[in-house]
């Protein structure tokens, strides 16, 4: 098929592998957005998740809010926030971060919640302070689920960052959005393939990390994968 040949030709063209719109730079941009977004979302999600998971308070509200956030259409939220503020990277990151909070938050509070209450009770009975209970007992035991939440969050941002190219930011989504606009099929497909490969690679890295964390938290057991999707 000529389409496949054209796409391969696009992907292997040395012109795509250098400069400000070259693949290496776009990949770096994409990963950069992803990192900044996840860090920004963590500023909200980590303390909130620890509070809800540790105290058990506001749990229903947290479930409700994260569920409601998931129902928000990615594209709608991104375009709305950008139009309401200004065109540029910061509003786009804010929109991506808002959508990234639910999986992170859910991973943290459900992870902490899944820790056996008897274990927490025993830690407290031995004289640990609340901070020590969190850092030395709950967090290590909750780590697999927290990494699971992080995994969902990162993959989701990789996906939504692609969509965000629509409002003009860089990253790998540019190839798809620009290609679609001028009906340049090899560019669209080439860009799409790079995003897919990137997502699968990062997912595989997390799978390994999750396995290691689980071995650490519970050496004698095996664990199901935990992921979710919103974009």
């Amino acid at each position: 098929m000529s389409l496949i040949n054209d796409t391969v030709a696009w992907l292997t063209d040395s012109a795509q592998w250098s400069g400000g719109s070259g693949i290496p730079w776009r990949v770096a941009q994409h990963l950069g957005y992803t990192t900044i977004t996840v860090l920004a979302a963590s500023v909200v999600a980590v303390p909130l998740g620890l509070y809800v998971g540790h105290t058990g308070r506001w749990k229903n509200t947290a479930v409700l809010v994260t569920g409601a956030l998931r129902a928000l259409p990615t594209l709608g939220l991104i375009t709305l926030i950008v139009l309401l503020t200004s065109v540029g990277l910061t509003p786009a990151i804010i929109a991506l971060a808002v959508l990234c909070i639910p999986p992170l938050l859910a991973g943290i509070y459900s992870g902490l919640e899944a820790v056996d209450p008897a274990t927490v009770d025993a830690a407290r009975a031995q004289g640990m302070t609340e901070t020590q209970v969190i850092t030395r007992v709950e967090l290590p035991l909750a780590l697999p689920l927290i990494i699971g939440g992080l995994r969902s969050a990162v993959l989701q941002v990789i996906a939504t960052a692609t969509v965000a190219a629509f409002i003009g930011v860089g990253g790998l989504g540019r190839y798809i959005i620009d290609g679609l606009a001028v009906r340049d099929t090899p560019r669209v497909l080439g860009g799409a393939i790079i995003v897919v490969v990137l997502a699968l690679l990062i997912d595989a890295l997390f799978a390994v990390g999750q396995r290691l964390a689980f071995r650490h938290a519970s050496p004698a057991d095996s664990h199901p994968q935990l992921k979710e999707k919103t974009a």
């Binding site: 389409l3 996906a159 692609t162 969509v163 989504g173 798809i176 992921k227 974009a231």
Partner: peptide, 18 residues
């Protein structure tokens, strides 16, 4: 199932028709 799920949506949407 898990791998299919990892594929981001916009790329899948443009790859599938091709």
């Amino acid at each position: 199932g898990s791998i299919l799920y990892t594929i981001p949506s916009l790329p899948l949407l443009v790859i599938l028709p091709s």
